[in-house]
């Protein structure tokens, strides 16, 4: 990892090409915002429905820029000890026992006794990193407030040690599924990027990039079916990753067309909710059979 030189892009097209090269097809706004993030050193807040590649954007960005990725997965009840740092109590105790109590007080609060958690790790890293704070909307507001210091000044204050400032400027990507409104203060410090499901053409490209052996006509059909499914009112619409999985599965099965039986056999790859399965097989399955019927009619007629 250290061998790869970190890249500093010069223009928006550089970023777009770079992301493409590592297998991520960015939308125009995604590449522009990524470029601004590298230029301005501001965190990026990415919002959008589940499964449109928000997390993947951060990963690909790290890969393209030759930086390592530090990931902080947020969840309800995440606290500073898990996100920032924690003192290594056992080591401190051992030290106190090993040396006399008087001397130990001096140095048990040193960096040696610090357990770094993702945020501190990203700030203190000697190499520039990409910091991914995933699903920030899952945490509570207190945690968000704590993040403000990290995000605006890239520093962490530890009472016993003082302020640790970042040696290099990390690129910070925050993702949110919009399950709650984030605070204005946090938004103010970020660049904002809304990712949505891609259009048919771009999703085609994505699918074909990840399943290059798939026949073009079949890929188009697949993406059209996926788009049809996303139109339905579902609990969990299929994500981009799932369309890629489906494409690979169809390849493995050697499918030539998505007809009704093929669809019903492989449907579980893209639809993962019982009520959704009913809904999809009722709506889409039927329509596929219709399309197949008309095609056969054309072939015979």
């Amino acid at each position: 990892m250290a061998a790869a030189p970190t890249i500093v892009p010069d223009s928006v097209t550089d970023v777009a090409d770079g992301l493409r090269a590592v297998g991520y097809l960015p939308s125009e706004s995604a590449s522009l915002v990524s470029f601004l993030a590298t230029k301005l050193g501001k965190p990026v807040l990415v919002e959008g429905p589940a499964g449109v590649g928000k997390t993947q954007l951060a990963k690909s960005l790290a890969e393209y820029l030759g930086r390592s990725l530090v990931r902080l997965q947020c969840y309800e009840g995440l606290d500073e000890a898990k996100a920032l740092y924690e003192w290594n109590y056992r080591k401190q105790l051992l030290r106190i026992q090993a040396t006399g109590e008087q001397e130990a007080w001096e140095d048990i609060f040193a960096e040696d006794f610090l357990l770094t958690r993702p945020l501190l790790q990203a700030i203190a890293s000697a190499e520039p990193v990409v910091l991914l704070i995933d699903e920030i909307d899952k945490t509570d507001q207190e945690f968000e407030a704590m993040l403000l210091e990290v995000l605006s000044d890239f520093q962490i204050s530890i009472p016993e040690l003082g302020v640790i400032e970042s040696r290099t400027h990390p690129i910070v990507v925050l993702t949110s599924n919009n399950s709650r409104e984030l605070t204005e203060a946090l938004k103010r410090r970020c660049l904002y990027l809304w990712l949505d499901y891609p259009g048919v053409e771009r999703e085609m490209e994505i699918v074909r990039l990840h399943a290059p052996d798939l026949d073009e006509a079949l890929a188009r059909r697949l993406v059209e079916v996926i788009h049809m499914i996303r139109q339905l009112d579902m609990k969990k619409p299929p994500s981009i990753a799932e369309s890629i999985d489906w494409a690979r599965a169809l390849l493995l099965l050697g499918a030539e067309d998505i007809d009704r039986s093929m669809f019903e056999r492989t449907m579980s790859i893209i639809v993962k909710h019982r009520t959704d399965i009913d809904l999809v097989s009722e709506r889409v399955g039927v329509r596929l059979a219709g399309a197949l019927g008309s095609e056969q009619a054309e072939a015979t007629g």
Partner: peptide
């Protein structure tokens, strides 16, 4: 680009 750059810095929600 002009529009996107403005939007990403100014408009912070959908």
């Amino acid at each position: 680009d002009f529009r996107e750059a403005l939007a990403s810095t100014i408009a912070k929600s959908q």
